[in-house]
Simulated assay, not measured.
Amino acid sequence: MIAVLAGRLNVKTRTFSLEEVPVPRPGPGQVRIKVKAAGVCLSDVHLIDGTLTPRLLPGDTVTLGHEVSGVVDELGPEVTGWEPGHRVLLQAGEERRGAVWTRGVDYDGGWAEYALATASTLVPIPDDLPFEQAAIIPDAVSTPWAAVTATGDVRAAQPVGVWGVGGLGAHAVQLLRLVGAAPIVAIDPLPEARERALQFGADIALDPADPSLSQRVRAETGGAGLAVAFDFAGVAAVREQAVACLGPGGRLVLVGLTDRPLEIRNGTTFSYFQQQIRGHYGSSEEHLTQLVELTRRHRLEFSRSVSEVLPLAEADRAVERLLRKEGNPIRLVLTP
């Protein structure tokens, strides 16, 4: 038996370890991928610390990693249209039996030398797109892209706010700039994150502790308030602050995950101005193919999004660095 390295989490004990596992063999409709790069997401950290728990995982142990790129290594029975050597990224999940299963959460992901994927979840990538950048497109880029273009339905020249300029929020700013939102107001407690927001295209970056934040947002939007506010932090206080900055018909899009209650303090005002709250989760294949095409056409590039590349053997160190926000990373990437 040939053994290879994988980053495994026991969700019962919340014990993460690097283990040797057998090389997986693709079954019918599956493809084996030789992993070239895998992103480290805050969701991975939350799985380890117990904040998140898999809903559909059939056992107690899973290989983490839902942001994955690599090359086709072996085809399972009944697979057509792919050949060994094809460069691909993997969708972060798939629908099974009427439910969405997330890679690296509900089934084995890409913190490994090899990963299995249903053939329909593969997306081809161009030769000039580095694997490290391709790996973060599922989730780090596609989740904010879907939130902006689908759930948020942002139109050109609409004023928007982004709360939380971390791995997803930073890309949201970049993507909002691409679709023509204006002005883009970024809100984050960290000075480094606010500076990053301005570099990524925000028109103004504010500290959520500023007691005049709502007034400053109104002034920046000519008194109109925000058409769309995005919560990428998953913090109850953020959501309350964001609602206070909405204009008539404005919508709050919840992207950051939390189990805390959602509270609207002034329900009469909220209803009078016909405001909305919309939940958002993940993305679909069309969002990935759109983003790959945009990178192919050089409308987007993500070199500054990859804060550092570390070997898979240092996955535990990458988790610790992300947890502590050491170096204020956008995305850390693992390579086998």
Rank of each mutant, 00 (worst) to 15 (best):
P311E: 08
G104T: 14
K12L: 03
R194K: 02
R321V: 03
L291E: 11
Q215N: 03
P22N: 07
E320D: 15
G152Y: 09
C245S: 12
E240F: 00
E285M: 14
S17G: 01
A38C: 14
S284I: 06
L18I: 13
V228W: 02
D106R: 10
P211L: 00
R103C: 09
E220F: 01
A92D: 08
L332W: 10
E301P: 09
S303I: 09
V292S: 05
R216Q: 14
V228Y: 10
P329W: 11
V72D: 02
L168D: 11
T80W: 12
S214F: 05
V21G: 08
G249Q: 02
V154N: 04
R96G: 08
D128P: 06
K34L: 04
T15Q: 15
Q91V: 05
S214M: 00
E67Q: 10
T61L: 03
D231L: 07
G279Y: 02
R296W: 03
L90V: 15
R96S: 07
A315L: 05
D106G: 05
A244R: 15
A157L: 12
A186M: 00
L56Y: 15
L213D: 00
A117R: 00
C41G: 05
H280Q: 07
F230A: 03
A140V: 11
T268I: 13
G110H: 11
D139M: 05
V333W: 11
R324T: 08
L52M: 11
A147L: 01
G81L: 06
G247N: 09
W82Y: 14
V45Q: 03
T335L: 02
A170L: 07
P191H: 06
L9A: 05
A202T: 10
E195M: 06
G27P: 06
L323Y: 14
R331L: 04
L262D: 09
L116D: 11
E132D: 15
L42I: 13
D259C: 02
R32A: 06
